[in-house]
């Protein structure tokens, strides 16, 4: 589809293939993951708030090579066509053109639209929208570098929850999310892009650790129930770890302000 409002290049371009034998053949071995992790460990995560000064709240999350930024604007007055006694949560998910293997177009494709919907479904149960009548909270997620699409979605949900907390929007809990990949009966936490190519299914869980409540689950692939339950338990533990990093990051910003004042 011709995007008339941008500088367009040639109509069609492809990612080049690799020379045979130039790459050490990658085979997935759960005992020996490429980055040295165990199958039940998530990538070390780095978080920071207040990165977009123009936004009411913002956060940046890095997990391995994955890099996600989120900005929250609001509460702002809702557009005229919609009136509501409850606040409206509006989520927007976008991959930057340079974030993946193939260059992405600026126009949203179906994956981005689906992820935007998942973002809203995962975050809305935790936000106290009843306190914001006639207002809209806009959440914008921009992925700078992606490494595993399910892990990317989970990181986006976590980053957005962090940004919402940074914006001072009242929430029941800071939602944490994580992803698993299924490799037949083996469950691997936080799969990278390379590992994802070998998986037979995936699951992304969004969870509120303090209340022990799940806000959203999305699973794909053909999996047995016992494996799913095991995966959910793994995710719940990982989400608790992620949330403690979130809490530390949020508390650190206040400590800085108090000490700096």
């Amino acid at each position: 589809m011709a995007d008339r409002k941008r500088v367009t290049g040639p109509e069609k371009s492809v990612v080049p293939l690799l020379e045979p034998g130039s790459l050490s053949a990658f085979t997935f071995d759960p005992e020996k993951r490429k980055d040295g992790r165990n199958i039940d460990r998530i990538r070390p995560v780095f978080m920071k708030t207040g990165v977009v000064r123009q936004a009411n709240g913002s956060a940046y999350l890095e997990a391995g090579k994955l890099k996600v930024a989120c900005g929250v604007y609001g509460p702002r007055q809702t557009a005229r066509s919609k009136i509501s006694s409850r606040g409206i949560l509006n989520c927007d998910f976008k991959f930057s053109p340079f974030s993946g293997g193939r260059r992405r177009a600026y126009i949203k494709d179906s994956q981005e639209k689906e992820y935007s919907l998942v973002l809203r479904q995962a975050l809305a149960p935790a936000v106290r929208l009843d306190l914001l009548p006639k207002s809209t909270v806009d959440v914008f997620v921009q992925v700078l570098e992606s490494d595993g699409s399910a892990a990317c979605l989970a990181a986006a949900i976590t980053c957005a929850a962090l940004a919402l907390a940074d914006a001072g929007i009242e929430m029941l809990d800071a939602v944490a999310a994580c992803a698993v990949g299924y490799f037949d009966s083996t469950i691997c936490l936080d799969p990278t892009d390379e590992e994802e190519t070998y998986q037979s299914g995936s699951l992304v869980l969004s969870y509120m650790p303090s209340l022990n409540e799940v806000t959203h689950v999305i699973q794909s692939g053909e999996i047995g129930t016992t494996t799913t339950i095991k995966a959910l338990e793994l995710c719940v533990d990982a989400c608790a770890q992620i949330q403690s990093v979130m809490q530390q990051t949020l508390a650190a910003t206040i400590k800085e302000k108090i000490n700096g004042a």
Partner: peptide, 8 residues
């Protein structure tokens, strides 16, 4: 104390 959302 400094608290975060969801903290009891």
């Amino acid at each position: 104390d400094i608290v975060t959302p969801g903290q009891r």
